[in-house]
Write a protein that binds this DNA or RNA. Structure first.
Length: 223
DNA sequence: CCAGACGTTGTT
DNA sequence: GTCTGG
DNA sequence: CCAGACGTTGTT
DNA sequence: GTCTGG
């Protein structure tokens, strides 16, 4: 699954890579956690925009802005059918830019360290995401997103069964366009190639959500 | 028809 | 054990 | 995802 | 909002 990731580039570099406008400040964060704000790229009326949204999708029909269930991830296999995600999947697809993501071993007893996965020869993963907008009773709009997951490739699969869906730059425009036919979308959601995925074991420093700095991705083999 | 759910992961 | 907060 | 709380009353 | 179960 994908429950933590990092985005360690400046907003100007994100803007350059995705050719999207931004209007809100963003601080580099090596440890982005559920419920916190992170930049996502959407197709707006005036072209691509970078918006800060809350990680963990709040459905537009939520009464109190909370969910009784986890919405940080959506399974690629069911996202198009799910009552919760169906609407956002049709109209509100986004790219979640990431420098890398963390996975923890499913078997806690072995004491395996957390792993930091990065794209080989690239500065960004472009995760496939969906988003929604919720309006509080006071009229405040809150935008939020979920990251789509799929089967792990052979590199990630050594410690975990699932990983986030990531696409190449030539697929981005079609993914975020609201007019792309729904039938075309499923083919976007395969695993990222193992040959382009790097893995680095890191310390438990990243476990603490308050730790946001470069120490999160320091290799435990080199310290 | 209305009421109630709507999710992911990992573990046993 | 299970839920909430970050 | 992990870490931390999980409660009540009354007082500042 | 929209689907499923009864």
């Amino acid at each position: 699954m994908c429950g933590r990731y990092g985005l360690i580039k400046k907003i100007e570099e994100i803007q350059k890579r995705y050719r999207a406008q931004y209007s809100e400040a963003w601080e580099t964060n090596y440890n982005i956690c559920p419920t916190t704000l992170a930049p996502v790229i959407v197709e707006g009326e005036k072209g691509r925009e970078i918006r800060l949204m809350k990680w963990g999708l709040i459905p537009s029909w939520s009464e109190d802005g909370k969910t009784k269930f986890s919405t940080i991830n959506a399974r690629a296999e069911t996202v198009a059918k799910s009552g919760l995600y169906r609407g956002p999947f049709k109209k509100h697809r986004c790219i979640v830019p990431a420098s890398g993501f963390y996975e923890w071993a499913k078997d806690k007893k072995k004491g395996d360290p957390p792993m930091w996965f990065t794209p080989k020869g690239d500065d960004f993963f472009s995760f496939c995401g969906i988003w929604d907008s919720w309006k509080s009773p006071e009229g405040k709009e809150i935008e939020s997103f979920s990251i789509i997951t799929t089967d792990a490739n052979t590199v990630v699969g050594k410690i975990h069964d699932r990983m986030p869906c990531a696409i190449t730059d030539n697929m981005i425009a079609a993914w975020i366009s609201p007019t792309t036919p729904e039938g075309d979308l499923q083919s976007f959601l395969g695993p990222y190639p193992a040959s382009k995925t790097s893995a680095l074991p890191v310390s438990a420093y990243v476990n603490k959500v308050a730790n946001k700095g470069p120490e999160c991705i320091a290799s435990i083999n080199s310290t």
